[in-house]
Design a protein around this nucleic acid. Sequence first.
DNA 1: TATAGTAGGTACCTAGAGGAAAGTGACTAT
DNA 2: ATAGTCACTTTCCTCTAGGTACCTACTATA
Lengths: 130, 130
Amino acid sequence: MADNADWVAAAETDPELACPTSAVVEIVFSRWTTPILWTLNRHGRQRFVELERRIGTITPKVLTQRLRQLERDGMVVRTYHPEVPPRVEYEISELGRSLAPLFAHLAEWAADNLDKVEQARHDYDTDPPK
Amino acid sequence: MADNADWVAAAETDPELACPTSAVVEIVFSRWTTPILWTLNRHGRQRFVELERRIGTITPKVLTQRLRQLERDGMVVRTYHPEVPPRVEYEISELGRSLAPLFAHLAEWAADNLDKVEQARHDYDTDPPK
DNA sequence: TATAGTAGGTACCTAGAGGAAAGTGACTAT
DNA sequence: ATAGTCACTTTCCTCTAGGTACCTACTATA
């Protein structure tokens, strides 16, 4: 069903960019967005510092930037509690959750094919062309 | 089927990065790779300049870089014909073609949800929080 | 008194990605 | 003799994503 015909058909919708997925790739797969969405989906509603600690290597500045972007795109819902100390909670939106099957698909492809990529890299590096 | 359980199950495979899809995202969705793979899949085996013209805005330097990377990752097959002028043909590999359903899935999500993202952005911009 | 915790904001800096433009080599067509 | 083709390569330059470090206000705790 999701075969070559789908791909070709979808391509017709945006002939000028030669790739109808460019827009969605920028939204969904720009830097840090997958770990953030993944963590939010995995652990449910959580606070800024929890997110920061779970992702591990992200800096607060960048985490804020990405969360704002995801909020603007409607993928994440931010709830501010005006307390002291301040409390802010982030959760994935319905739109964000609608990516779950896609992410699962991606994870499945990775499980099936990542070792092939590794193998190809090894082959290329041990016997470089020309 | 591809629901929350899949997502969670996949997450268990790489606890340290908090996101099992990071690796595959870098391989498949790094800059220019989707337009290149899309064009290769759409128009079949083709030469460097054809690719260049179809993608439109890419520079030869970057196109070469991305094609090398895709070749190393086993997504693209390069064939060199030592003629004058030189002739090089690129085609998508079997591994690359195995991404087709995933890309179709992505295009489907885009068709269903891109306008929601647009709407969310508009709402955010016309009535910014706080 | 001073320190920690929270959710950021701000200023500064650097590395690296990517663009522009020209060059290359070997041959062909005019 | 000159120009053109192809598939790059090289050089130079810009831009920006992202990192480091420090700052904010307010309170509870030691």
